[in-house]
Nucleic acid binder design. Sequence first.
DNA 1: GGGTGAGTGTCAACGGCGTTGACTGCGTCG
DNA 2: CGACGCAGTCAACGCCGTTGACACTCACCC
Lengths: 188, 188
Amino acid sequence: MTITAAGVGSTTREAIAASARELFEERGFAATSVRAIAAGAGVDAALVMRHFGSKEQLFVEVVGASRGAGPELDGPLETLGRRLVEHVLDPERDRERRAYAAMVRASDHDGVRESLRQAARASFIDGLCALLPGPDASARAELIAAQIGGLMQAWPTVGVELLDTVGRQRVVELYGAAIQALVDSPTG
Amino acid sequence: MTITAAGVGSTTREAIAASARELFEERGFAATSVRAIAAGAGVDAALVMRHFGSKEQLFVEVVGASRGAGPELDGPLETLGRRLVEHVLDPERDRERRAYAAMVRASDHDGVRESLRQAARASFIDGLCALLPGPDASARAELIAAQIGGLMQAWPTVGVELLDTVGRQRVVELYGAAIQALVDSPTG
DNA sequence: GGGTGAGTGTCAACGGCGTTGACTGCGTCG
DNA sequence: CGACGCAGTCAACGCCGTTGACACTCACCC
């Protein structure tokens, strides 16, 4: 069949992808079996392999959506730190945050780790690097990415606690200032 | 044999632990099989289970060594950020960094994730929290831990590149300042 | 209209995995 | 001596990801 006209592919392929996305984000990579994904889509496990090649490739394809550099980079440099944190902690971005956490946790597998690194580069580091002033912009962009990654990874565990004790706004303020320290490049 | 004389436990138990530590840190959790660990120690896989309960428990026990709060917290508050980064990037601490990375990657498994969280709390966050001034010291300690975690996670991938381009000292300077921003608690 | 070949799907099986339970030695204690 | 517990092995279980053979449909072409 493969309707290439309007861009939609086969329906069952999408069903598999949807089932996989749901299970992966809910239970993680290791705890999700190909057979469970197939059952969720109402097909045989072998069909999953035929469509996506391997469990790892399926994971990378449905969870590691390479959303391009968002609008969070636009705006004055002086408030970039705050904006980045605000973007990362945006409640509506919960799904993306859990997807990122799922990828980090699954990065025990080489393919996932590599894909994670590439996605971070393409969707964030490169854009950020172009924005930063100074000669070591690239290094600072990497370090900012490390900060953001640390926050995204920690949030599912400590986020609710922090929201209770100090509130989102204070977290944005604090962590935003910490990131801003790298944006502003201390002359040391 | 079971030499109980000098307080040392059974030799084979240690052999299993040593084999496991080596394989886990070299290949990661997922790529290391219980059978391979057992073969490395010259015993049967079932014995590994009898001694350590499960692969996950074995991993937590040998990789997640709960090294207590180190001396990196001692010293003046004004240079705490730099000292933390220096400690984390210490070339001699390579083994610990890889162990941490291995744990993060294996945190797809609930027990590992929980143990990781507890280890971070016990060996770092609590001690740090006691040091920080200000009312929201606990929250800042958590956020600093997130920064440190981000750096440790990113280092195996981007570390060598950063060493080449800007050098360790500049990284310590930059990331140290970013952490210091949370130590010093902007009044916002 | 009947072959042909590609796409879609199922089924049974493979080897490897973590884990378990039954079993064998063996040193120790009563 | 007999009971007991510990170290260790062995064979098996059920699940896993993955594969190859097979069936069906349907467009296409002579």
